[in-house]
């Protein structure tokens, strides 16, 4: 078992030595810099989007009120129009 262990150790040592020269390719630093810039831009967009997301519920509520108001106004206008067409308009003196 000890011999086998030594074999494993010797092989690991040889492979460690042989791979000591491994380096990233020369453009790797620039490549990481570009990835970080992209990350920075993405982060900035996220930051800008954050306040908009915060007021989104208020905007949705305002849109719902506007819709209700528009429907009611439309109904009132239709009523007025049909009353005029039937000549049942009461004139105010």
């Amino acid at each position: 078992m000890k011999d086998q262990d030594e074999n494993i150790d010797a092989r690991l040592e040889r492979l460690a030595r042989a791979t000591e020269v491994v380096r990233p390719r020369p453009d790797f630093g620039a490549r990481v810099a570009r990835a970080l810039e992209a990350e920075q831009r993405g982060g900035l967009l996220l930051e800008l989007g954050r306040p908009a997301r915060r007021i989104l519920p208020a905007l949705a509520l305002a849109a719902a009120f506007s819709l209700v108001w528009a429907v009611e106004s439309d109904q009132a206008f239709d009523d007025a129009l049909s009353a005029y067409a039937d000549e049942t308009v009461e004139l105010e003196w």
């Binding site: 791979t19 000591e20 491994v22 380096r23 990233p24 790797f28 630093g29 990481v32 810099a33 970080l36």
Partner: peptide
């Protein structure tokens, strides 16, 4: 970027 320059060789070697 200084951190990247100082560590990339070791980290790429480990991963490789």
């Amino acid at each position: 970027q200084e951190v990247v320059d100082a560590t990339s060789a070791r980290l790429v070697r480990l991963s490789a």
